[in-house]
Structure formats: structure tokens, C-alpha cells
Design a binder for these strands. Structure first.
Lengths: 178, 178
DNA sequence: CCTATCGTGGAGTATAAATATCCACGTTAT
DNA sequence: ATAACGTGGATATTTATACTCCACGATAGG
């Protein structure tokens, strides 16, 4: 069998990180903001890269950041008002998967640019599929996500965060190993 | 404003080529098969790479290929029975955009693999959006696409192909330049 | 049966996208 | 004043994607 690519062009992993970070923040909507270091430890993700993700979420006004000592991140709005689509789009520079290369303008009988006032039929079809994708993503909010998580998972997250909040003088080396 | 990526991760261009090739083949459903060289000239696309695309469409049984002199490609089925989704999936090794990295298993309080019998909520949401995307793509067939093309475009395509079919002894250098 | 035409398939290269790291700076709480 | 934090720019590394090259195999037609 012929395979040119047998790997997948994934949706950037950054989107997955963003969704998980927002999920965690939605579960800690009380007390003081969660610093980036905590987030990176919680998920065992590189902190410096996570900084980019969080900054993008902040500039998209999904998160609020508090600089300085005891600073960190929290949701900028109630969890019920933040959709999966907003999160994905905030970190995913792309706003369309399909970018028409105007193949119809190429070749010996290609159309002229003037003839191409409307998008070509193929671009239209792809565009409509993307709309369906986005519409579906827009249906889920962070509230839905935390509602659907298994209790065990939420329990452990809360306890780890709470535990740490109570003993904030601890160095990170005292935290449980991965 | 903070921008980490300001370019777009596009749907592979190969999918666009595949759609255009099928579109053209759907318009020439008579006479002898269209050789690869004709296709590559028509769209001014590199022939060697197009070979991959066409081979994938053939092995997906969307196209039929005839080897040897006077060979070429034609649709394996009526245009009304070939959907945009089938074409995209035939050339796009990926069948999902989102691949869950199991972030929930990472970090100090990550879940164990045994606890993860069901996909995580985030993966579920992303998966459902992809289903919506695919469902939408499956609604359009090649017949719809050629029905929606502007008459001028179809006219010129038919005449270029017809012209050439009538004078098949010509060398390609006699063809109109791009 | 011989040769030009055409499809198949594998290996290899180049480019751009995505991931990740580093460091210097600014802000705030204590 | 200083330690804890977020911001932002520059840069390295890895991987996906786009594209090329070449040798092989099959068929039509003389």
C-alpha cells in the first residue's frame, strides 16, 4: 500500500495545553491566582513554553493575569462563558484549515484574477466544513468540561493544589515526583 | 500584540490538488482516460508530485488508472457517488486533527493509564467537532462541484482538453504557455 | 518483439511550521 | 529592597510537508 504520510498533521499541541490549563483554572475559581509554575508542574509541561500559551490566552481576554509576587492566572470570565472554540482560536494563529491556492488561476486555461470574484467551489465546500467544526466547538464551555470530568481526577487536582496552597514556602523539589 | 505564529497551519495542499484533479476528471467522463501529464499541465502542478496524489486516489478506489500507452486516469465511479470527504481522506493520511497527548496522565497527580479507559473530556469535544467537519464534507459530491462551477471555467477546460484530444500527436511544447 | 508512453513506488532533499529554550526586563507584594 | 511573577524578543531544535529523482513494470501499437 502506498503511503506518503502515515503520520498525522495534528492540531497544534498548544491547543491541547491551553484547554487543559483552562480546565484546571476553571476548577480553582477561588482564592488567589494560580502561578504559571504551578500549572507547569501540574501538567509537567515546560514552563517557558507554557508562558506563550498563557500569554495568548490572556491577550485573548480569556484569562486575567496578575503580575508580581503572589500573581498568577485566573479566568477572565465565568467558566460558563468561555467556549472551547475561543480557547482553540486564541492559541491557534490559523483561523482556517484550508487556504485556497487559487489553482483555478493556474495553467494554460487558468482564469484571470478578475474572473475570480467569488471563492471557487472547492474552497466553498471546505469553508463550510470548517464552519461546522467551529460551530460544534462553540457549543462546549469550560463548565461543561469540568462537569464531565471524572470525580477522581477533580479530587486529586483540588487536593494537590490545596495542599500546596497551604504550604507555599516549600520548594518545588518537595513536590511528589512524576 | 503577542503573536507566536502568525502563519496558518493549512490543510495539506495535496488535498486541494486532489479535489481539483477529481473535479477535472468529472468533467471529462467520456473517451479515453486523462494522462497524468495532461493533468499536471492543466493545473501547472509538478507532475512527479501529482503522481503521488493520483496514486493515492487510485488506491482509495476513487480513480481508475490505465497503465501503458494511451493510459491515464478516470473516475472509478459516477461523479455523484464520490464525496469531497472521500477525496480529502484519501490523500490526507490523518484521519483526525486532534491527537490526545494524554496530558491527564502527566504531572504529580496524573491519572494512571488504567484509570483512563474512556477518552478525556477535552478529546471528546475535539472529536465531536471533527465529526461535524466530516459530516459536512460528506454532503458534497463531485456532481455538486461541477454543477456549481462557472460556465466560463468549464467551457475553457473542455475546449483545451478537447483540442488536445483531437491532436494527440502534438508535442507538449506546442501547448499554450502559462 | 520492440519501443514509446504511461503508471508505480521507494529514496532522498528542501523548506517551513511547530516545539521548545534562554535571557533581559518590568511589576507587585511583603 | 528583594524575591516572586508575568512579558516579550531572539534563537535553537525537531518534525511535517512539499517536492524531486530515478529505476521499474505494464500496455498499445507498429
Amino acid at each position: 500500500m502506498l503511503v506518503v504520510y502515515d503520520y498525522s498533521m495534528e492540531l497544534p499541541r498548544i491547543a491541547e495545553w491551553a484547554l487543559h490549563c483552562c480546565w484546571l483554572l476553571a476548577q480553582t475559581e477561588e482564592g488567589r491566582p494560580l502561578p504559571r509554575r504551578k500549572l507547569s508542574e501540574f501538567f509537567d509541561l515546560p514552563e517557558a513554553y507554557l508562558a506563550k500559551v498563557l500569554a495568548m490566552l490572556t491577550s485573548a481576554e480569556l484569562l486575567m493575569s496578575t503580575p508580581g509576587a503572589r500573581g498568577g492566572y485566573r479566568l477572565a470570565r465565568p467558566a460558563g462563558e468561555i467556549t472551547a472554540l475561543q480557547i482553540v482560536q486564541a492559541v491557534d494563529g490559523r483561523h482556517t484549515f484550508f487556504h485556497c491556492a487559487e489553482i483555478r488561476q493556474r495553467g494554460p486555461v487558468g482564469l484571470t484574477a478578475e474572473q475570480c470574484t467569488r471563492p471557487c467551489g472547492i474552497a466553498r465546500v471546505m469553508h463550510e466544513a470548517e464552519l461546522a467544526y467551529r460551530d460544534q466547538l462553540a457549543l462546549t464551555t469550560l463548565s461543561d468540561l469540568i462537569g464531565g470530568a471524572p470525580p477522581a481526577s477533580q479530587q486529586r487536582a483540588a487536593s494537590w493544589l490545596g495542599d500546596d496552597a497551604r504550604s507555599e514556602i516549600r520548594t518545588t523539589s518537595r513536590l511528589p515526583a512524576v
